[in-house]
Design a binder for these strands. Structure first.
Ligand code: FES
Ligand code: FES
Lengths: 146, 146
DNA sequence: TAATACAGTACCAGTATAGTCCTATATTGA
DNA sequence: TCAATATAGGACTATACTGGTACTGTATTA
């Protein structure tokens, strides 16, 4: 399926929650409780997003996580890449040498174009946009002639 | 990963090949040979796409598959849906009752918007467009304000 | 120094993916 | 009629990924 993993989905939910109070720090436990997911899962996600640079962390009492950047500057593309690695709609559009058809494939370049378009789409949706109701609409504008 | 399956990728390669000769019928064996994939795999894909209505088939000698519609009228979205089922970027954006967060999730609606945008993007790329070099470009035009 | 909270990683079960194989059925042509 | 061709429809396998859990270690602070 052309689908993001549940983890990434959860990640966006968590980040959206944190974006409500961008200044304060949030502990894994409190986030888990608010969002209704098992603590261990939330903890794992926070660790991953921290390692990818989306969050900053502090240990000890009063510790927790907070957003590394302003909500306007974190996009869905950032979250996807943080939790799922390099962006690629097809195996082939992400990196060379992964697809056995690469040599004789006539449409590889086209998929890379599609990949760019979708990546771009996700880049234009920030955490801040997620908080506002129904801001994400509109059809993409292609130069594809057909 | 936000990625289509290899099968779907292969499917587009096969359809693009068939779109070169939209009129004639192509046997599974000849397609496999041209595209460089194992015959059994190609056969499976053709059967799936036939059942989804993308292709028409004819058995017996001189039999084979051909496109059910003109190359201009078959989009990447069609192929994805034929081979991967209903379109949904997130578990939740596709159907109700699949995600445990549904009730308290603040951003479900936003993901559905993103889903629509991506679906739309794939709908705008047809088999005919795949054949031409570098026709797929351009950034999507969002109303998302951030 | 004890409690808190993150860091890292290993682990497991369930599921999806990619690929193969086998039997049945329809069509054609000799 | 018969044999060859070619699709129809599954069942089946091995592998990889996903979602979720558990455990050990380290930093901070009251
Ligand atoms: S390069 Fe992989 S299918 Fe085209
Ligand atoms: S409804 Fe599933 S994460 Fe929002």
């Amino acid at each position: 399926m052309l689908r993001i993993s549940k983890f990434t989905d959860y990640g966006t939910v968590i980040l959206a929650l944190m974006a409500d109070n961008p200044a304060s720090t949030h502990s894994a436990a409190s986030i888990a409780q608010q969002v209704g997911l098992p603590g261990s899962t939330v903890s794992k996600l926070l660790k991953m997003m921290n390692r990818s640079g989306l969050l900053t962390s502090c240990r000890g009492k009063q510790g927790g996580y907070s957003l590394a950047k302003a909500p306007q500057e974190i996009s869905l593309a950032d979250v996807v890449e943080a939790l799922e690695g390099p962006f690629g709609v097809t195996e082939c559009s992400r990196q060379n040498g992964l697809c056995q058809l690469e040599e004789r494939c006539a449409i590889r370049h086209q998929w890379q174009g599609v990949n760019g378009v979708i990546h771009n789409a996700l880049q234009q949706v920030s955490l801040a946009a997620l908080q506002q109701p129904s801001t994400v609409t509109g059809a993409p504008d292609f130069k594809a002639n057909a």
